[in-house]
Design a protein around this nucleic acid. Structure first.
Length: 667
RNA sequence: GCCGACGUAGCUCAGCUGGUAGAGCACUUCACUCGUAAUGAAGGGGUCCCCGGUUCGAGUCCGGGCGUCGGCUCCA
């Protein structure tokens, strides 16, 4: 055979496979084996680089099995058992098309927009006719229709047609969103400076055709199990000025068992929802009378105070001095700080004796007042003020979410006023402080460096120095970080600290921001060694983010089972009957005398009942006392969730153990 | 703020097409005095989110408001 009649591809194991010219991914799979041919979903194509490195490495694309393979490509056949998220993403995207197909059939006149796979499933956005509203109650009907498409094992057929032809087709079908997408593709190709857009791809399964880049599995039959999950509003193209579409969320898996396992996980995540646990454990409550503002109950306050102790202790150790500043100010302050111009919409205002006043949305202008109350020498710097600062922000009603998004926010705030030379070292110390705290909870930090945005103040030289200082700090600590070019604040670059919790969710907690704007606006100064006035740099720093949010995250991270040092109820004394209440009271008082949070359950209930209730309250230690213990001054120890295997120890021993645990702050 | 759903006892929820409310848990009382995840019995408890409308009659239907939930946008 001559070269033009064959093509060669390289398989993942490095072996070359020779195929007839024009062979497809499906042909390759068939050439490898009939089992693979049946299991194949798509083909991964990487160009060049037969040896697996060099040119082309990293350029890879997942393609339909039916597309011809390029000569010399490295390929891998994708099946449901392939590693990574791609196989699932593929069938989820397939399922999105099936959803759209079903919806088109059930709701004539519906306009379709886009339907991608997302992290745990997929969605499709629709514009329903004005008189139609779709709710979760309609899901069974839609799912039934979808099942028919899956059962029919419809082939996904790709056609590449000219943009003009596709446009005409969607104009004809009155699919305005598809027309807009095509127009934008054409414009993007033109503005990208490359070749003009020649064709767009359409995918058809059964009666349904969609504008789609692909890829898709060969047919709908690989969708093993799917479920529609929720319906929500979503702006067309994520733009709040544009049409609100109806988004239907769903998920899909290769097998029913996997789907059920996933739904089970969702159920478990709901069980650790901090709003549910907050109510059950009586940590906090919300009231219609003050939306977005938690009421801390005694148990929640115990957690708050334990966290505050950590915060206060560590700030002191690290050279911060705690301050406390008002929450209500003459609006002049916010005009000077700039918040009036940029943030007024989200602030709370009132009038006191005809004087317009506002609640602070940030603590920095307040700390600046303290800094300005005296003159500073370069010898004084850095000046570090910390405050559990209460700020109010009028968050839009739709975004409030338990403790995680509130209007009444207690930030673990700090501001450092320092010289430019000190910036890097101060940032290093902030990062170390953050890591110290996160490690206590087993959070794994991830860092992001955000640099100069388009709209900014200050000279290029200033930004060079500021970004250099942050980068220098990250490098000096040997830390990995992600770069977010252009994502900094207008007044300076920042490092954000993100964490992953026990179930893999990511949260942004801390932030370290350089600020060259506030010192300017408030004309901050220090006297240098040269006896001249200089501007200090200001570092804004929060590590927990806010006490409210951090506690919310902790509750979910620990599923309510807080470590002893944070637990509102550290131990509960359980007399086996009321006859031993007196001894129980002695035990309880002794432990309380050591500063531990202990209660006595002297209700006339059975010991089984008391243990059950104590477990539900998630007390780390249950101390059972009865005739034996009262006789020899001991307690029978039961650990939360561990059953009766803690042994029997003397009162002194248990006190010592609990105290050591609390002081160590062990997780 | 936007879209949608929801709002019934402290909690979780039931209440069909309009006829003045119900369960379990929790709570109270009594009995039991118990050894490692629910002892039994009796009892109390409701402006059915708020305002207005339709109706002989509204928890139920309609309109408005507030709040919550799921998303979207936002988080300087």
């Amino acid at each position: 055979m001559s070269a033009t009649e064959t093509l060669t591809v390289t398989l993942p194991d490095g072996k070359a496979l020779e195929l007839p010219a024009g062979a497809t991914g499906a042909d390759a799979a068939a050439a490898i084996g009939p089992g693979l041919a049946r299991a194949a979903l798509a083909v991964e194509v990487g160009n060049g680089a037969i040896e697996g490195r060099g040119e082309g490495e990293g350029v890879r694309e997942v393609r339909d099995l039916a597309r011809p393979l390029p000569d010399g490509a490295r390929i891998g056949i994708l099946t449901s058992r392939s590693e990574g998220s791609e196989p699932l993403a593929l069938i989820r995207h397939d399922t999105a098309h099936v959803l759209a197909a079903a919806v088109m059939e059930l709701y004539p006149g519906v306009k379709i927009s886009i339907g991608p796979a997302i992290e745990n499933g997929f969605y499709y956005d629709f514009e329903f006719p004005p008189d139609v509203s779709v709710t979760e109650a309609d899901f069974p009907k839609i799912e039934e229709r979808m099942r028919a498409h899956v059962k029919a094992a419809e082939t996904f057929v790709r056609e590449d047609i000219s943009a003009a032809e596709a446009r005409a087709r969607f104009v004809e079908e009155r699919q305005d969103y598809k027309v807009e997408l095509i127009d934008d593709l054409v414009v993007a190709a033109r503005e990208g400076g490359g070749a003009p857009l020649e064709t767009v791809s359409l995918y058809t399964n059964g009666p349904f055709t969609d504008l789609c880049r692909g890829p898709h599995a060969p047919s709908t039959k690989t969708i093993g199990a799917f479920k529609l999950q929720s319906v929500a509003g979503a702006y067309w193209r994520g733009d709040s000025a544009r049409q609100m579409l109806t988004r239907i969320y769903g998920t899909a898996f290769f097998t029913k068992a996997e789907l059920e396992e996933h739904l089970e996980r969702l159920e478990q995540a709901r069980a650790r929802d901090h709003r549910k646990l907050g109510r059950e454990l009586e940590l906090f409550q919300f009231s219609d009378l003050s939306p977005g503002a938690p009421f801390w109950k005694p148990a929640g306050m115990a957690v708050w105070n334990a966290l505050t102790e950590l915060w206060r202790e560590q700030n002191r150790v690290r050279g911060y001095r705690e301050v406390k500043t008002p929450i209500l100010y003459d609006v002049e302050l916010f005009k000077q700080s700039g918040h009036w111009d940029t943030y007024r919409e989200n602030m709370y205002f009132t009038e006191v004796e005809e004087r317009p006043m506002g609640l602070k949305p940030m603590n920095c202008p307040a700390h600046i007042q303290i800094y300005k109350d005296r003159r500073h020498s370069h010898r004084d710097l850095p000046v570090r003020y910390s405050e559990a600062g209460l700020v109010h922000r009028h968050e839009p009603s739709g975004v409030l979410h338990g403790l995680l998004r509130v209007r009444h926010i207690t930030q673990d705030d700090a501001h450092i006023f320092c010289t430019e030379e000190q910036v890097q070292e101060e940032v290093v110390q902030c990062l170390r402080f953050g890591f110290y705290i996160y490690e206590l909870f087993g959070f794994e930090p991830r860092l992001e460096l955000s640099t100069r945005p388009e709209k900014r103040i200050g000279s290029e030289a200033m930004w060079d120095r500021a970004e250099g200082a942050l980068e220098g700090a990250l490098r000096a600590e040997g830390l990995d970080y992600e770069l977010n070019p252009g994502d900094g604040a207008f007044y300076g670059p920042k490092i954000d600290l993100h964490m992953k919790d026990s179930i893999g969710r990511s949260w942004q907690l801390g932030t370290v921001q350089l600020d060259y704007s506030m010192p300017e606006r408030f004309e901050l100064a220090y006297t240098g060694a040269d006896n001249a006035e200089h501007r200090p740099v200001m570092i804004h720093r929060a590590l927990l983010g806010s006490f409210e949010r951090f506690i919310g995250i902790l509750i979910e991270h620990y599923a309510g089972e807080l470590p002893l040092w944070l637990a509102p109820l550290q131990a509960i004394v359980l007399p086996v009957s009321e006859r031993f209440s007196e001894y129980g009271a002695t035990v309880c008082e002794t432990l309380r005398g050591h500063g531990l949070r202990v209660e006595l359950d002297d209700r006339g209930e059975s010991i089984g009942r008391k243990i059950r209730d104590a477990e539900l309250r998630k007390a780390p230690y249950m101390l059972v006392v009865g005739e034996r213990e009262a006789g020899d001054g001991t307690v029978s120890v039961r650990r939360r969730g561990a059953g009766d295997n803690g042994g029997t120890v003397t009162l002194d021993e248990i006190a010592e153990r609990l105290l050591a645990d609390a002081v160590r702050r062990s997780a």
